[in-house]
Amino acid sequence: MLSRVADSIYWMNRYIERAENVARFIHVNINLMLDLPIDQANQWLPLVITTGDRAAFESRYSEATQENVIHFLTFDELNPNSIVSCLTAARENARTVREVISSEAWEQVNRFYLMVKAAARQTTPEHVPDVFYTSVKMASHLYVGISDNTMNHGEGWHFAQLGRLLERADKTARILDVKYFMLLPSVNYVGSPYDAILWSALLKSASAFEMYRKRHHHIDPTRVAEFLILDRHFPRSINYCLGHAEQSLRQITGTPIGSFNNLAERRLGRLRSDLEYAPIEDIIAKGLHEFLDGLESQLNIVGQAIYSTFFAMRSTPLPAI
């Protein structure tokens, strides 16, 4: 597979996953605000912190109101992480690889993009209908389903998985980090109905609420963190994402688990096994924020290793090994 093509597939899938996650954050927050007492119901800044764009937001918007944050994260074309920007970037990448992905998958990316562009024209930030965020999530699921069922599960598909799963791991880490910060200091809430509401909202934004309930029944902060970080079976937990990302990486290179042939395998393998054997109690004891912060930088390093291993354009052949 051409390096350029692999690069585009990887980023196309990262961007679609990113758009879906932004839609999740907003959707859950809108619902959460309805349940909170009116004086508490302005928790919009944490969303901007979640996506890592606080500085960009504050340079152009005066206040973190619902309208401003929703506009910034949904339709602001100057924000590279807004839903509309993610879809534009995903589609630009898809355009350059449309002969590699299936026609059905390309059409879905294109429809998805046209749907978001039309919504951007037709709605105002005060009135983005709830159903829009549902549509974004569903369009992303549809895209993933179409890709799974119309493309060979060969190299291209594994690069897609790699992009999607690393992005998802990153977003789950971020949302947990921010919410944890936001939730813990509110000592007054502990044991109150709001406590449960906030932790539930956190689970819902990762579509984890029902699966968590089946597993642990009671909402308990330590178990919530454990579920989102370490669960082996929940498809948005960080451990699951990294485990499957590693499998895709090894499908691409053919290297068996337990050894490595390049930087990407080494870094991702190390990060994944760190996670695999970490008890949640240790993580909490050392500081969840510090742990998640470290994880996010490790994920960036893995991303750089993937770039230098597979995508970087070399002008001369590598020396024979």
Binding site: M1, L2, S3, V5, E155, I252, M313, S315
Partner: peptide, 21 residues
Amino acid sequence: ELVENRDLVVIDDYVMMRTTS
């Protein structure tokens, strides 16, 4: 494959494309 010029390079008078492998 659909290639752009940056995917191709000439090595010893052969045209090669840059792939992930």
